[in-house]
Write a protein that binds this DNA or RNA. Structure first.
Lengths: 134, 134
DNA sequence: TGCATAGTTGCACTATAGCGCAACTATTAT
DNA sequence: ATAATAGTTGCGCTATAGTGCAACTATGCA
């Protein structure tokens, strides 16, 4: 699948960030794929930030991204086997602050806006919308 | 056991380094405990470097260290459950360069020098011994 | 054709991680 | 006591990671 060999510590490096863990937790827990704007509305983080974190996850061989018109859908990969074991760890993580739970709640709400399983709207949260030029 | 709450990303941060992965791989694969000098002779890395990495693993809640005379024995912890799942990942990691295998070979050789299951000698490799002051 | 918008990325800044050196503590043996 | 040695750590250095801002590309719609 990927031609470049990925060092083992790179994989863990990819998980060694709270925002990336939130992304992974969300996608692993739901088994869903998600476009960037849905993630923005779920994690309440700006798109440029999430976009960069998604790139890191992709380069670490954890995530695949597919463009579909204006939207890009991201989903976790299921191979090789140490990756799926990694997801077992992620699912077993404590959620002391309830951050993961809150992300999930917002994500599920956001999924209701889909039409035919596809995201047809952009970022809903005002504070993360690109402000129109007057 | 540990009173301080450890953030999830700290745990992965602890694995996000090649040297620390080598330490963990060695201890997880063998189920052994090891003192610093044995690790130096197995990983061929200077003691100050390994000592610092061991501290990071300890602070991440992955490792426990017990002093016994002049020696300090380190072993991986088995709780909480996401930790043991993490070890499943470590065991499933590819060893493309054979680094883990080479570490294991040297470790097993080094274990032969133990007496009554305890390490009674210091660093064997010349290049990592503290040079005597003439 | 032109505008709105989903998403990406260059840049500058700051914070932190890992390193080697050398000095340090603690324990044992002579 | 004193020397040797197992192990730890402060310091200074360098490299890199994460961030916000703003500019950028690309796609679809009026």
């Amino acid at each position: 699948m990927h031609l470049t060999r990925i060092p083992s510590d790179t994989v863990f490096q990819a998980l060694a960030d709270e925002t990336r863990l939130r992304i992974i937790h969300l996608l692993v827990e739901t088994g869903e794929e998600s476009c960037l704007c849905e993630l923005v509305d779920s994690l309440l983080e700006p798109s440029y930030k999430l976009s960069r974190h998604l790139k890191i996850l992709r380069q670490a061989g954890l995530l695949t991204s597919q463009k579909e018109g204006r939207w890009v859908y991201h989903r976790m990969l299921e191979e090789p086997s140490y990756i799926t074991r990694l997801y077992d760890v992620v699912r077993a993580l404590p959620d002391a602050d309830g951050v993961y739970a809150a992300d999930l709640t917002r994500f599920h709400e956001r999924l209701c806006l889909r039409d035919g399983g596809r995201c047809l709207v952009g970022i809903q949260r005002e504070e993360f919308r690109a402000e129109a030029v007057d």
